[in-house]
């Protein structure tokens, strides 16, 4: 049975080797400060008490006033899993966070997908470009304020303008 790290325990363990990097914790989640993501992830991968050698998934959520990048980690040697989160792009400004491709190479395509569909920039990514949509595509379609640009019905739908306003 896979052990799931509780948020509190993981926050304490992270604070032990990277002080000041945890923002908050609740349930099974730990919210990290975006500027400390590289340090923490590197530690979680190579330190003997974690050995998180597998990044199960990397995704992002649009919370209107900010974005959240979510990391699901798995440790095969310790048979454990953990969830890291990080809030970026407050006020829908330029959202960016450090890339974890140097730590887990499997993050490559997932970070490109998040950039493509959600528009979060990953600094230090070795091949930072769209992965599914084509070059020259306007906008990032999974954002809450995205309005399908070539379908007149979508842009004239009731509330379309309001939802765009609320997002700003």
């Amino acid at each position: 049975m896979t052990t799931v790290w509780s948020g509190g325990a993981l926050a304490e363990a992270i604070e032990a080797f990277a002080p000041g990097s945890v923002e908050s914790s609740a349930g099974s989640d730990v919210w990290l400060k975006p500027e400390s993501i590289s340090t923490v992830c590197e530690g979680l991968k190579i330190r003997s008490e974690f050995k998180f050698d597998l990044l199960s998934s990397l995704t992002a959520v649009d919370y209107i006033d900010h974005f959240e990048v979510v990391y699901h980690l798995t440790s095969l040697p310790m048979n454990a899993s953990a969830v890291l989160k990080s809030r970026v792009g407050h006020g829908r400004t330029e959202a960016s966070i450090a890339s974890v491709v140097p730590i887990w190479r499997g993050a490559d395509y997932q970070e490109r997908e998040v950039w493509d569909l959600m528009g979060i920039r990953f600094d230090g990514h070795p091949n930072h470009k769209r992965i599914m949509l084509w070059e020259g595509y306007p906008g990032h379609p999974l954002r809450k304020d995205y309005v399908t640009y070539d379908q007149s019905i979508a842009s004239t739908a009731p509330g379309a303008a309001d939802s765009l306003k609320g997002a700003e």
Binding site: T39, E42, G43, K45, I46, R47, V101, P102, I103, R105, H125, P126, N127, H128, K129
Partner: peptide, 24 residues
């Protein structure tokens, strides 16, 4: 920090295209 220093898996040289070596 303990353990070996992790390296860029793609071997991007310093001063390369900031968008990544492959993209150039």
């Amino acid at each position: 920090m303990t353990g070996p220093k992790l390296i860029d898996p793609y071997g991007t040289p310093a001063g390369a295209d900031p968008r990544g070596a492959l993209q150039s």
